[in-house]
């Protein structure tokens, strides 16, 4: 058949924890992204509001990119800690 990983993987006791954590963080980010689409669909003029010298659209857009990176770092840290704890 040829299925299965290309390299041999060890047992990962943190798999369930990481999967659950991933789902929670995915929901948080999806809501953040959905908010962006919702504002653009329901009240697009709000995106032209100026906050701290920039349009709300620019701020929200930057936030979606920066928050993605921050959440990725947090996820990786928690996964690393779980792997160290559960795969001793």
């Amino acid at each position: 058949m040829g299925h299965g990983p290309a390299v041999k993987l060890g047992k990962d006791n943190a798999q369930a924890y990481k999967s659950r954590l991933g789902v929670y963080l995915f929901i948080v980010y999806t809501l953040f992204y959905a908010g962006f689409i919702a504002i653009n669909s329901i009240k697009p003029s709000m995106m032209e509001t100026v906050i701290a010298g920039q349009t709300f659209a620019v701020i929200y857009g930057f936030a979606l990119i920066v928050v993605a990176f921050i959440m990725a770092i947090i996820y990786n840290s928690l996964c690393n800690a779980a792997e160290a704890r559960l795969n001793k």
Partner: peptide
């Protein structure tokens, strides 16, 4: 944003 689906 699509990369968050991939990562998580």
């Amino acid at each position: 944003a699509g990369w968050m689906v991939a990562l998580f």
